[in-house]
Simulated scan of single mutants.
Amino acid sequence: MPDWLREVDGAIILTIHVQPGAKRSEVAGEYGDALKIRLAAPAVDGRANAALLAFIAQRLGLARSAVELKSGLTSRRKSLRVTGARPDAWHCLLGQ
């Protein structure tokens, strides 16, 4: 299991490094102990956070309500709690 993913109380916790304002939304690989995600949305009025949650939910095939921002509201480094995903779901995030 990668460093940026852990399992806690039946949910998975993802550590994400976000790059807002990119040309397109995509997974850019690992960034230290985090998963780097480029987002097309700007970091204005919470748009990047909303786009991140929707992007993760779509990649994992889950409802948007299954992904919750736990920390990092105004930071590039974020912690997300995902319920209803399998622990091996990280393959979907990396496109494998």
Rank of each mutant, 00 (worst) to 15 (best):
R81W: 08
R81I: 15
L35K: 00
A41K: 12
D33K: 03
V44P: 02
Q96K: 11
L69F: 09
H17N: 10
P2I: 08
I13D: 11
A34I: 07
A50N: 12
L93S: 01
V67R: 13
Q58C: 07
D3Q: 08
R59E: 02
P20N: 07
L73V: 15
G72I: 03
A43K: 11
V18E: 08
A28N: 06
V82N: 09
P87Q: 07
L52W: 04
H17Y: 03
T74L: 13
L39G: 07
A89R: 03
I12S: 07
D9F: 06
L14V: 02
S65E: 15
H91M: 06
E7I: 14
R38F: 03
D88E: 09
A50M: 12
I16D: 00
L73G: 15
Q58F: 02
T83F: 02
T15I: 06
L53C: 15
S79E: 11
W4N: 04
L62R: 10
R24E: 09
A22R: 13
W4Y: 05
G21W: 00
L69C: 10
G29N: 01
C92E: 05
G29D: 05
I12Q: 04
L80F: 07
L80K: 06
L93G: 05
G84K: 10
S79D: 10
A54C: 08
G46Y: 11
R81F: 05
A63N: 12
E30Y: 00
L73D: 15
A50H: 12
A85G: 11
D45E: 15
A54W: 02
L60N: 03
L52V: 07
K36Q: 08
A11K: 14
V44A: 12
K23W: 07
K36E: 03
A34C: 11
R81D: 13
H17K: 12
D9N: 09
A11H: 03
V82T: 13
